[in-house]
Structures are given as C-alpha cells and as structure tokens.
Write a protein that binds this DNA or RNA. Structure first.
Lengths: 126, 126
DNA sequence: ACAACATATGAATATATGTTCATATGTTAC
DNA sequence: GTAACATATGAACATATATTCATATGTTGT
C-alpha cells in the first residue's frame, strides 16, 4: 500500500523547481525559436500529420490531378478530399487551377518532398 | 475515358465518380506509399505538429537536459513535459539516461534537425 | 431557361489529443 | 526505517480535428 505524503504548503503560483542548471537553461533559452517560427512549424507538421493528407500530397508529387482523380486514388469521398485540399491550400502547400468543370491541384512547394524523404529515412532507420 | 455513370440519386453504396482519368489514376495508384509507410510518416509528423514538442526537441537539439531544466526552458509544468517526453520516447525521437534522481534526455535521431531545417525554409519561403 | 456534372462548404458527430491535477514510483540522504 | 526530491503516470476535462451528410456554388451543354 502506498502512503500519503504530507505535502507542505504547495505554492501554486510558480513552478517550484529546484534542480535547474542555470547556465545550461539560460544558454538554451537564448537560442529558442521565435514564437512565429514555432507556430509555422506546428502548422506544417500538423498538416503532414494526417494519413489522408499524406496520401494526397504524395499523389500530387507525381502529377497534377483533379479532385475526382484524387478521391479515386486514395479511396475516399470527394467531400473529404475537398475539405483536406482546402487545408493544404490554406497552408500554401498546394495550388489549383480551374479547367472547365474540373479543378486541378498540384504541389505548390517542392520542399514538401524533401520532408517526406527525410521522414521515410527516419522510419526505416529505426 | 469516363466510365459508367451512376444515378445521381441517394445511392450511397459507391463513390459515383465520372471524371476519372484512368491512365493517370492507375499510374499514380501503382506508385502509392505502403500503408506502413503512411502510418510511419503520420506518427512522426504528428509528433512534430505540436508546439510543446517542437520546443522540447529544439531545446534538446542544443544539449542534453533533465526534465526540470526542460520545464523551465519552455515554461511549462513538469507533468506536461514528462507526458510529452514519453510521446517522443515512444517514437524513438529522444532517449534518456538516469543519473541519480534526475533523468537526462537527448535526441535519439539527428534526422529530426533536418526536418526542422526544411520546415523553417518552407515558412520563410512563402 | 434547364439539367448534369465537378467541386466547395456548413453543420453535426465522433474521436483524438493536449493540459491539468493528484498521486505513484524511484532515488538519495539521514 | 523516514523525508525530500525528481520524474512518471492515470484520470478527468476541454479543445481540436477528421469524417460524413446534405446542400450550395460554379461550369458546360442543350
């Protein structure tokens, strides 16, 4: 049986840490990412962190395609594909052009492919 | 060209698409990522798609640090840091070693840094 | 005008996930 | 043994997000 510990006064105002290596902490703190950079990275990686969007981007890395084709390739509904393409569009990861009734999508930034490659290297390398 | 047309009724059995470019679709389909690869990428990018974990990884990219230091550096609670470190540990993104009462974490895979670099290039390049 | 098609989108829902709180576990010193 | 400290973790909660459904918008052809 576990015992309860008598907690002395728990000042909840501050995080009362006692083990900080001050020099190390301040050194690393100074080299922090800017808030803007953190948010930017978060957005991109969040966009890449979904299997549907991964499949869409990978398909588009091969050729430009219309929404219907994309739906068929990844085996999901047109509605879902449209929704997810909008997410990718908002992040400037894909661009689109209209041709008659159809809308063709393609990659807007080839950096994405390098991220994929790096990611694949990682999952093989473990 | 386009295949059979289904009634535009509420037949929700199949995805009734009529605009498929068959050659293009089958070409791209053949070159699909394996399900395993998709899941692997999803896991990694999902892990990177959170600001707390981004800050943790970026801090660890500079030097090995204990949990307390990390909490101080990113300005969040010890509990949260521990939880998120476990996520990163499960994905083999960080490793840890015990030294007395403290546990020191460090990056387990330097590929991560390249992903960060690529990501940063992207957000600047738009 | 209309019908048919391709795509976009708002709303609803279910699930996933980040954060907090309380407490447990493990280590050192006494 | 107990106390103090550093870390880990289960549960609860709130928010975010993926997917589906129904419908709207835009385009072509008649």
């Amino acid at each position: 049986m576990a015992k309860k510990k008598l907690t002395t006064e728990h000042s909840s105002e501050q995080c009362e840490v006692t083990c900080i290596h001050e020099d190390r902490v301040s050194r690393v703190k100074q080299n922090s990412l800017k808030a803007e950079e953190v948010l930017g990275l978060e957005d991109i990686f969040k966009a890449l962190g979904d299997s549907t969007r991964i499949k869409l981007l990978h398909a588009l890395s091969q050729e430009e395609m219309c929404v219907c084709d994309l739906a068929e390739v990844i085996g999901m509904s047109q509605s879902l594909v449209s929704h997810q393409l909008r997410v990718l569009r908002n992040l400037r990861l894909v661009k689109h052009r209209r041709e008659g009734k159809m809308v063709y999508y393609s990659l807007d930034d080839e950096h994405i492919l390098q991220l994929f490659t790096q990611g694949l290297e990682h999952i093989r390398h473990r």
